[in-house]
Amino acid sequence: MKIRLFPLIFLFGLAIWFMSSCNSGENANTDELAGETIDSSDIREEILISMLAPSDMAVMLMDNPDLHFNKDIINPSSNYKKYNTNSKIALNIGVYTADLSYASLFDQEQITYDYLDIVKGMSEEIGITQSIEKRHLDMIKNNKLDKEHMMKIINESFMNTDAYLRENNRQKVITMILIGGWVEAQYIAVSLTNDSPETNPKLTESILAQKISLELMNKALENVKGDKTLMPLKNDIDKIYKLYLLLEDNMSDANFKEFCNLIKQVRNSYIV
């Protein structure tokens, strides 16, 4: 019995290993995000740094009745075809998630649907097979949903992605998605200020409030020295944080403009 049972167990294990390899994004053009392992089988004291998701970030920044939707400032949908490395795809899943969340806040159902579909495709390209459910896409396509309902769908979709990546020990991918989303949401917000803190004081206040979420991001990136994928992103975050400190010290028009310019420069480097 033992002799017959073992090949079965072995084949079953082999099948699981094979499936998990197929789902880990190794078929993308480069696999610079492969090989991450976090051993969660023997946890005694765990720390989770729960940085803001792009969709929550968009709500915190853009939930403001004085704002409007401007299609020209979001990352064009046609750009997704040119992202052909895992890093670029991960960053721009975050970018597009922030964009679609911004669109959903201003009842742009078609853009929300199109961008969710793009995020679904990009996620599958890097092996995230359980992100946006078809029933959610159908709900957006076939119904006139209110903002609140849209937010719930978008957040649940992001949570699926987050859970999938955590369960597959792909922490680096989720970190890149979160950074891409953070920068894009800030980019939309600073674009709507026209580089002046006076344009919409409530929006300026929301932009400044995000210093605390950047502090958490810094904490999450504390141990990435030597990581060639995350180090450049950490440098971007450090530069932005320095300007936050400058604004805290002296909230002048010139300093705010410098902050806006840096956000734009960083964001534009992510979407190329």
């Binding site: 969660s40 946890i43 005694r44 004291e45 765990e46 720390i47 989770l48 740094i49 729960s50 940085m51 803001l52 998701a53 792009p54 969709s55 929550d56 609140e148 937010m151 719930k152 978008i154 957040n155 649940e156 992001f158 949570m159 987050d162 859970a163 955590r166 605390i212 979420s213 958490l216 904490k219």
Partner: peptide
Amino acid sequence: IPEARFNALPLREGDNVDIYKS
């Protein structure tokens, strides 16, 4: 409205977890 981050994990009796959040 539930926030989008997934803050769940398997633990054993006696374990603990700290979650940092804004």
